[in-house]
Computed example of a mutant assay.
Amino acid sequence: MIIGIPREIKDQENRVAITPAGVLALTAEGHRVVIEKGAGVGSGITDAAYGEAGAILRSTAQEIYEEAEMILKVKEPQPAEYDLFKPGQILFTYLHLAAEPELTAVLCRQKVVAIAYETIQLADGSLPLLMPMSEVAGRMAVQLGARFLEKTYGGRGVLLAGVPGVPPANVVIIGGGTVGTNAARIAVGMGAQVTVLDNNPRRLAYLDELFNGRVQTIMSNSYNLARAVVYADLLIGAVLIPGARAPHLVTEDMVKKMKPGSVIIDVAVDQGGCIATIDRVTTHSDPVYIKHGVIHYAVANIPGIVARTSTFALTNATLPYVLKLAKEGFRAAAIRDPALAKGINVLEEKITCPAVAQALQLPYTPLEGILC
């Protein structure tokens, strides 16, 4: 199979979809890898390193799309890439289509086989290709929150750890999954007072044991949320429903009661966000806006600012699936691997992910009916 990797063009997106080790693994099995020149620069990977691993370098994204049978990306295609797809081409990337009606329509119209990293799901419910970036985003959320709490960025001027005689900042995390757990880990390490809300008692029990009582765990409901949001210096949204839009758990009225200069970071923004006042997606170039006196950070590709770490972590997770798709083709691979099958969001102009169809209020077609 011919696998193409274009350079990412989303704002400040410095990740790349493959490492030289990944290229070598593919070429060793007889596949051809074509990469746009400069695709790895933001992650500290040179064109020469890709060439030494067996990749063929191309000058433009158009050449990549024309030549490749499968396109590997990190983030969803941008409008400049919409017309580059060809019918039957496999697209393997983060898509988050529940919040992308226009992109969904494009993928259907272009007859793309769209496979989303974030909806590949193992039998135990885990999301293996979302996990590494969720780990990064959770950890980065606290670092970013600490920065925007500084007075020079418009924040309250609060140090997360406090100092002797002055209490630490209150970090409230909504969701105790991978993002929330990693955010809590960093917040605890920085000395903050940490509260995690989740609606799963077993998860709360796990977190209580994991952090040895250092994190306050609270059952998530509207009453408890309202009370926790009020005292938060840093509020982190870490809610995920695989493939679907995140529910708005924090209302605008709750945000209005937050302290001026407090900070909200909604890691779920690429799925619509779980905080009602997150009403637009921001970029790394212009990451925040202020509403009701509260700083809102709504960047959808947080891991892109630590691109080297993120690129290598992501490729570690995606490469086994890339090898499987390249060797068997998407149909045979999906039939043999139910987890991979759940990653197929669009096929033959039809939406095959129920959560995406429901979020966009579009017809859903079971994959089984068109896969064979």
Results as ranks from 00 to 15, higher is better:
8 E>V: 06
9 I>S: 15
11 D>E: 13
14 N>W: 13
16 V>N: 05
26 L>F: 04
30 G>H: 13
30 G>M: 13
33 V>F: 07
34 V>E: 08
34 V>H: 02
37 K>G: 03
44 G>I: 12
45 I>Y: 11
50 Y>T: 03
52 E>C: 05
54 G>S: 11
55 A>V: 02
55 A>T: 01
56 I>A: 13
57 L>S: 02
60 T>E: 04
62 Q>F: 00
64 I>S: 01
65 Y>N: 06
66 E>A: 15
67 E>I: 12
68 A>L: 13
68 A>R: 06
77 P>N: 08
79 P>G: 11
85 F>S: 02
91 L>P: 03
94 Y>T: 01
97 L>A: 02
97 L>M: 03
107 L>A: 05
115 I>H: 01
116 A>S: 14
122 L>S: 13
123 A>K: 15
132 P>V: 06
132 P>L: 10
138 G>T: 05
140 M>H: 08
143 Q>C: 00
154 G>Q: 06
155 G>D: 11
156 R>C: 01
161 A>F: 00
163 V>N: 00
166 V>T: 08
167 P>R: 14
168 P>V: 03
171 V>I: 11
173 I>V: 11
183 A>S: 12
185 R>Y: 05
185 R>M: 14
188 V>W: 11
192 A>Q: 03
196 V>K: 02
200 N>H: 14
201 P>T: 07
205 A>C: 07
214 R>H: 11
220 S>N: 12
223 Y>R: 14
228 A>D: 02
229 V>C: 10
231 Y>I: 12
232 A>D: 12
233 D>F: 10
233 D>G: 10
235 L>W: 10
237 G>S: 08
255 V>K: 09
256 K>Y: 10
258 M>T: 09
263 V>Q: 04
264 I>D: 09
270 D>K: 05
272 G>K: 01
277 T>A: 04
277 T>G: 07
279 D>Y: 07
281 V>K: 14
282 T>E: 05
287 P>C: 10
288 V>A: 14
288 V>H: 02
290 I>Q: 10
291 K>M: 00
292 H>V: 00
296 H>C: 02
297 Y>M: 13
297 Y>R: 09
300 A>C: 05
301 N>S: 07
303 P>H: 07
306 V>C: 11
314 L>Q: 12
319 L>T: 08
320 P>M: 10
320 P>Y: 08
322 V>S: 03
323 L>E: 13
328 E>V: 00
329 G>T: 00
344 I>A: 01
346 V>Y: 00
346 V>K: 02
352 T>H: 01
356 V>C: 09
366 P>N: 13
369 G>W: 09
371 L>F: 10
